[in-house]
């Protein structure tokens, strides 16, 4: 499939790499499979389940949001897919490969402050390719490509500390994508941004994803964000974290800001709101010893 390049800055992407990834095994790469997954942490001498018996299948190229109240283990599940957290029970694999640890096939975008402050914006983005063993020159050119993609080519020599929060997150996205990961993992990446910047970033992300079509697993507690972005919303309950709903979002793409006030959007939002509300109430009662 030849992507229609609507925007000039997208034309510079390495389309051969995107395509080879898409046609590797007939189907695209980025299949995430979670089977009977439980994750427990030591807690006051006992064990506390952050994730309990999670079953999840994410198809290649799907945009999935993990939605839930804070403390529901959605970030833990994401960290397990990233390879930072070891599951207590169950299995976890990406493209039939069991997850054994972090790796460049699963790009990670953190909530904030994850750029190397001592590296310039360009050096941050070039880091992944450099670790992959391409030369410094090649890594720099890849970095420039991805910085243009997120609209920050003019800031390549700046240090992260001089950029705004939104710009830093765009660098973070460029850095994760520079490895051409089959799965992009995002842990509340826009959670620390103001509302206006967040909406711009969401549109920006969808625009980039339209080009890449890689799998995205996006953690958020913001219902609007989840409905606006995803093909599928996986709703999780609070402690212990269980998957309680799997909602397919059939809103047309490309999605724009005007969608946020449409009737269909409101329907999805209401559905999620009800689920989250029930869960939050339950968690409240639990905390109050009820």
């Amino acid at each position: 499939m030849n992507a229609v390049v609507s925007d000039n800055r997208l034309a510079i992407l390495d389309h051969s790499r995107l395509r080879s990834r898409a046609s590797a095994k007939g189907e695209g790469r980025g299949h995430v499979s979670v089977r009977g997954l439980s994750i427990e942490f030591d807690h006051n001498g006992g064990k506390r389940a952050a994730v309990q018996n999670a079953e999840l299948d994410i198809r290649p190229g799907e945009f999935v949001c993990l939605l839930g109240p804070s403390g529901c283990g959605k970030s833990t599940l994401l960290n397990a897919i990233a390879g930072f957290v070891q599951p207590t029970r169950g299995t976890l694999s990406v493209d039939a490969q069991p997850v054994a640890g972090p790796g460049p096939d699963r790009g990670m975008v953190f909530q904030q402050h994850s750029l190397f402050p001592w590296k310039t914006v360009r050096e941050n983005v070039a880091f992944g390719p450099l670790m992959a063993g391409v030369g410094r020159q090649e890594a720099t050119s890849v970095a420039r490509t991805f910085l243009s993609l997120v609209g920050l080519a003019a800031f390549e020599d700046a240090y992260p500390g001089t950029l705004s929060g939104g710009m830093q997150q765009r660098v973070g996205i460029a850095r994760a994508l520079a490895n051409y990961p089959s799965v992009l993992l995002m842990d509340e990446p826009f959670g620390a941004l103001d509302a206006q910047t967040r909406i711009m970033m969401q549109e920006n992300l969808l625009e980039i994803w339209r080009e890449f079509r890689n799998t995205v697993v996006f953690v958020t507690h913001d219902i609007d964000e989840a409905v606006f972005l995803s093909d599928r919303i996986v709703v999780m309950s609070a402690s212990p974290g269980r998957i309680i709903a799997d909602i397919r979002v059939e809103l047309p793409r490309p999605r724009e800001q005007t969608l946020l006030t449409s009737a269909e959007f409101m329907d999805y939002k209401r559905q999620c709101l009800d689920l989250i509300r029930q869960e939050t109430l339950r968690a409240f009662q639990q905390q109050n010893g009820g």
Partner: peptide, 10 residues
Amino acid sequence: VLVRAARSLG
């Protein structure tokens, strides 16, 4: 978080 970021970048 920086160590994690570096690890996930290979």
